[in-house]
Design a protein around this nucleic acid. Sequence first.
DNA 1: CCATTATAATAGTGATCCCTATTAAATTAT
DNA 2: ATAATTTAATAGGGATCACTATTATAATGG
Lengths: 205, 205
Amino acid sequence: MEQPVRKRGRPRVLDRDVGLDIAARLFWERGYEGTSTADLTKAMGINPPTLYSMFGSKEELYRQVLDFSIVRENSRRLEILRSNLPIHEALGLYLYDIADGDTQPDKPRGCMVSTAVLQHAEENASVARMTAALRETSMQTLKARFDRAVEEGELPAQTDTDTLARFYGAIIQGMSAQACDGACNARLKRLIDLALTAWPGKRSA
Amino acid sequence: MEQPVRKRGRPRVLDRDVGLDIAARLFWERGYEGTSTADLTKAMGINPPTLYSMFGSKEELYRQVLDFSIVRENSRRLEILRSNLPIHEALGLYLYDIADGDTQPDKPRGCMVSTAVLQHAEENASVARMTAALRETSMQTLKARFDRAVEEGELPAQTDTDTLARFYGAIIQGMSAQACDGACNARLKRLIDLALTAWPGKRSA
DNA sequence: CCATTATAATAGTGATCCCTATTAAATTAT
DNA sequence: ATAATTTAATAGGGATCACTATTATAATGG
């Protein structure tokens, strides 16, 4: 039970994590360029200088939102992936978890990262690099898991794990786009079930 | 040989189709919200009132750009799809053509429609509906082709053609996203080759 | 030449963009 | 109480947003 140590000075009116959560929802729903600082301060119930003293700038806030959201959402998925379940089964659960994230009832549709800032004004190139780097990292994580499966004999030795990772990465990105367009959870999972039939070591009909 | 009929009045300084082509490249690269009317007028070499007299508004210009680009780019793809080639082969050529479009040397990366306006400010909801409708139409086109293949006995009678269409739609969207992130043509085609192994009537290993 | 017609250029509009200099308020320490 | 400290609120800055009222220009028709 840690007592929130009362320091001297005027008390903060907004908890940092609450602020990040509010910002996450706005950026998630409207994108970086579609969310104004006025939107953010209004939703957080603060004035502009408070936002800037807490988070630095709009771009820095977005960076913190991504960190915050990834730490909170990604650990469960990585556990699934890194488990000792058969690779095909682990992948299925991993994708199902992402489909659930794309279609949460009281949250924006799609994924905050998979389809974020693909197009942008030149002035926002650095923000685009942030999300692109996160996408690349998540595909490298998938590839590393497939490499492990090859080592452990679960996948054929000659498997192109990079292409396999980018294929399921494309599925993840496509699911996010379709969720943004209104696709329901069941539809995404049918899509996953079909995607899981593209798997090395299968014979053609 | 039709002579460009000289009408009276001051001559236009910008051909309409040239203007649409310039606008297409900007919207394609930067997205709707990332492209300002100042960007557009500067690139076209015109002043704001000329843009508004030619195209009506930024939103109306975007609509015309989509019409213009689709008419120009989509007919070849639809011919491939509607040809009498075996369905699996036609689908492969169709996807290859899209991969080529995603990675043209002197054009923006990715697809103008597949991953456009997924997130947006509330005020741009009508623009988002435009691109979403185009995506839905293109998936319905795929589904119709798969339905035909079922009728013609190329696909099993019980094939879930809707899911099949949305699966390859997801591949198209994922390719666009990855092209935006810098994926080359060959990488996209490896992805396609793998996606084409997810096909009804195959036996699991 | 002059009138008519069609389009372009000038010069802005109010609103909103991201951000901040300055001042006010709310707490603890003495 | 008063001082010290920390945060919030007021008020607005310069730039850019999408857009337009007005004026100027360049062609043809008579």
